[in-house]
Each structure stands twice: as structure tokens, then as C-alpha cells.
Write a protein that binds this DNA or RNA. Structure first.
Lengths: 122, 122
DNA sequence: CATATGCTCAACCATAAGGTTGAATATCTA
DNA sequence: TAGATATTCAACCTTATGGTTGAGCATATG
């Protein structure tokens, strides 16, 4: 149901690997931006920024509207939900870890350094 | 607080771009696996699988324990929490979108297919 | 109209990614 | 000890990524 025309997880995660692109998404979170505005904070050519935007588009994370000579970009957050959904599966594991750590710290408090607990890893 | 873990996020997301590696993580979610076991489901050399595991290790997602001649791999979920935290920021946006969609569908129900709504983007 | 502006495109370059193969290493087992 | 097993390493190949530059194309603006 979620995986209709949602771009593959591959391209979504791939789009997120680059700090420049993540920063662009942050910028878009506060409003629409054209290519020049997205490129401005970075020391790179407009062509390079244009490529980054194209990667974001391929992942479905950005929609472009050509308006005269400027290309207005808008954040399209839906694919991020797909990535989040994938991650959500592992939530149990890191929660478990944190719970274990929590228990560990409590036990340490009580034992006052007497026994050293075994931990989760053999 | 926002992007202070940037170098880490790069390698974490990068590790997740590959479907093979995501499948390996799934496998590890059900228990420890050695390299051969991780490689088994895939039509690729052991050397290739070994490289994938190394990528997962670099991202901190897997810990390796050499046990005799086998290398036992264990899921290390903590870095996924960092990725999740990054994504969480955008949760508001896709929730917002879903709310809009919800409202749209309700309106459609009432209008009984009279107008076809154009969506939120002009 | 002339020219500045916003952006893409194409060509190119260096490096990274993902795969292969063959050889090397270390460890179990008969 | 000999051989099978588990895995890495090194070299190599192909394609992808991220960047550059220079040219080209619409579209605003004086």
C-alpha cells in the first residue's frame, strides 16, 4: 500500500547520503526555493547544485515547477515516510538496547559497583 | 544539534542505499550470522558479501567477532536511531500531507465525485 | 533590441561503488 | 600432517557519483 509509485528505497536513501542534499531539504522545509537559492550556501557551481536537485527529484523528494526562467522547488516529504517506515522496524532493537542500558545503570546504582553486570553481549 | 553528526549520517545512509545490505540487516535482526550465512541468499561471491559487511561495519551497524575461522556478525542498531532522528524532523511534513489527503478524501465523500480536486500544488 | 539572469546540457575528469577472480591466511577435522 | 572450510586481500573491470567548464536557451529588463 505504501509502495505504490513511491520510488525505491534505494534512491531515497541514496539521495540522503549527501550532506549538501540534506541541507537543501532543510532549506526547503522552510519554504519553496529556486535552484540559485538552493545553491547559494554552497561553494559549488550552479550546474552541480542542479545535479543535486535532480537526484532529489529522482527520489521524489522534490517537485520542480518551472516559472518563467526560474525553477521553483518544493519539498515532497512522502518518500521520507517510506524510509522512516523501513527504519521503524529496527526501533524495537535500539529501544531494547536503551532499555538494557537503563537497567544496567539502575543496577549499578543499587549495587554501588559491587557486581559488574554481564550486559547483553556474550 | 542539527547536523553535528553529518559524517556519520553520510555513511549510515550510504550503507542503507543497497538492497543487499538492507536484507543483511534484516537477517541479522533475527540473530547473529557469519559471513557465509549472510552471503547465502545472494548470487554473489563471498568476497562481494564481505565488502558489504565492511560497509555495514563502517556505518557502525554491524559488529564483527572473530571466532575461530568464522566471523560472527551482530546487528548494532544504534546508528539507525541517528538516521531516524534526522528523518523525524520531517515527520511533521508528511503528517501534514496525510492530514490534507484525509481532508480531501472526506470532501470527496461528501461531494460524491462531483468535482475532481486538483491537489495541493497548483 | 541588446543584454543580463536563471538554468540546463554536454563533455570531461577523478574517485567511489559494486562486482569478479585468483591467491593467501587461518583454523578446524580426519 | 593433509585437506577441507571460512574468510580476507589484491588486482582488475565497469558503472555511478560529484565536481568542473563552456556553450546554449529562454526569459526579464534597460
Amino acid at each position: 500500500m505504501v509502495e505504490h509509485m513511491t520510488p525505491a528505497l534505494d534512491v531515497i536513501f541514496q539521495a540522503l547520503t549527501d550532506g549538501t542534499r540534506r541541507a537543501m531539504l532543510r532549506s526547503l522545509a522552510t519554504g519553496d526555493r529556486n535552484i540559485g537559492e538552493l545553491a547559494a550556501p554552497f561553494d559549488m557551481s550552479l550546474a552541480a547544485a542542479s545535479k543535486h536537485v535532480k537526484v532529489l527529484e529522482r527520489a521524489g523528494l522534490v517537485r520542480r515547477m518551472v516559472k518563467g526562467r526560474t525553477h521553483v522547488c518544493r519539498l515532497e516529504p512522502a518518500p521520507l515516510a517510506a524510509a522512516d517506515e523501513w527504519l521503524r522496524f529496527y526501533e524495537q532493537f535500539w529501544n531494547q538496547k536503551l532499555d538494557a542500558l537503563d537497567a544496567l545503570l539502575k543496577a549499578e546504582d543499587q549495587a554501588a559497583g559491587k557486581h559488574q553486570p554481564k550486559g547483553t553481549l556474550r
